[in-house]
Design a protein around this nucleic acid. Structure first.
Lengths: 216, 216
DNA sequence: TGTACATCAGTGAACGCGCGTTCACTGATGTAC
DNA sequence: TGTACATCAGTGAACGCGCGTTCACTGATGTAC
């Protein structure tokens, strides 16, 4: 009965619109834990708003169960918090893709990566939108992460071309793959239910076939 | 010399951050002109922010050179203004596409429409993003406009399939076209300069060829 | 062993800003009598 | 022909809200002496 010392009314009153209000102060030397909590909260806001515009310093602080001022112990300003959140999105993405890269056969590898890519995009549409449609609004040093991810794609395509003795330009073919898969992800989350839209699986199969990226 | 009756300082001071401050009251019976000015201003805000989040009632009023309250003479509330702005974006889009539909040959017609589509997307990335990546946030009755535009695409594809005696499902092939072209438009505006990205023209040619939509 | 002190992990109050919306008002102009 | 009046196209002040940021503060805890 010890846990019921607070009435139900008190609980709902304080918890109804806010998560993690029950946070307790970190022990000495563990202050950095708040940093990752704040980043996580900011990523949640990105996920819900599908944009960095919906991320507010006060909102992230509230979710982390902390006063707005506590944010300044870990971040220069709001922009630094948002930047860390985007960085976190890219890290999560790269973890997902890295798994697929362990597949041996080049064709199966690209297909697995495509699958992982699409699954990430559909499961986390907010993060995906910020990462791949943010455009010029992204801080410059985060652009590099996107570039290195594209390099990985070019290499996967090159492996298949090599396997098939195909002399097309890998960068061009990779651009074809990326444009198409990007459209597949974004439209799937956007098409109204009335339309008998094809599954992403079927579209991915077609992509591989139509772009000549199967084994010959 | 009559035009210089105002000093340069006065001009810059009042015009620097605001357009059309010099609006004068519409004559009696012409009140509806403000409505279209407000819609235009809201579309400008969509264009600049690439999102409806950046559209504010006060911002649109300011651009139209009018007090925020004047908006309520023409729109129920802010949402109604935003909805009218999105509607306007679709109208502009349909005008652009309609031109291409006059081409006689089915293959050339789809190619012309694709060209018009891409040009619209690249010239008006903000409007394009709101129209094609807004998702569930769009008011339901605007979804119908998007659907009818997709129907036009399906018909164009069907015409080519008929011409070639190709028995593929037109809706499926149209979905392939739309996903790919969507990706082409969105990534083109987003890829960093370092990458030697292919031109949209070349990608469109490839799209037609790879998807088997040329004349046989 | 006791205690003063620096450090750490935060809080609280206040600022000016832009936002959507409310209510009450103004002042020119066409029209009915 | 003159004038009272309804209509039209707006304005002005105020409201409460959430925002980023500033400055000054608190109170627990480990550590040096």
């Amino acid at each position: 009965m010890r846990e019921n010392i607070w009435s139900v009314d008190t609980c709902t009153c304080t918890l109804v619109n806010v998560k993690a209000v029950t946070r307790e102060r970190n022990p000495r030397g563990q202050g950095e834990r708040l940093r990752s909590d704040l980043v996580e909260a900011a990523v949640d806001l990105i996920a819900e708003n599908r944009s960095i515009d919906g991320v507010s310093l006060r909102g992230a602080a509230k979710r982390a169960g902390v006063s707005p001022m506590a944010v300044y112990n870990h971040f220069e300003d709001k922009d630094a918090l948002v930047e860390a959140a985007i960085q976190q999105c890219w890290n999560d993405f790269q973890v997902v893709i890295a798994e697929a890269l362990e597949v041996d056969d080049p064709v199966a590898r690209l297909r697995a990566a495509g699958d992982a890519y699409v699954r990430f995009g559909l499961a986390k549409p907010g993060q995906y939108a910020v990462m791949f449609t943010g455009g010029q609004t992204l801080p410059p040093h985060l652009v590099g992460i996107g570039l290195s991810s594209f390099d990985v794609l070019v290499q996967m395509v090159q492996d298949i071309l090599d396997l098939n003795g195909d002399d097309r330009d890998a960068l061009f073919v990779a651009a074809e793959v990326h444009t198409w898969i990007h459209g597949i992800v974004l439209l799937d989350g956007c098409v109204p239910n009335q339309v008998d839209w094809p599954s992403t699986d079927r579209l991915l199969d077609e992509l591989m076939t139509r772009l000549g990226l199967t084994s010959t």
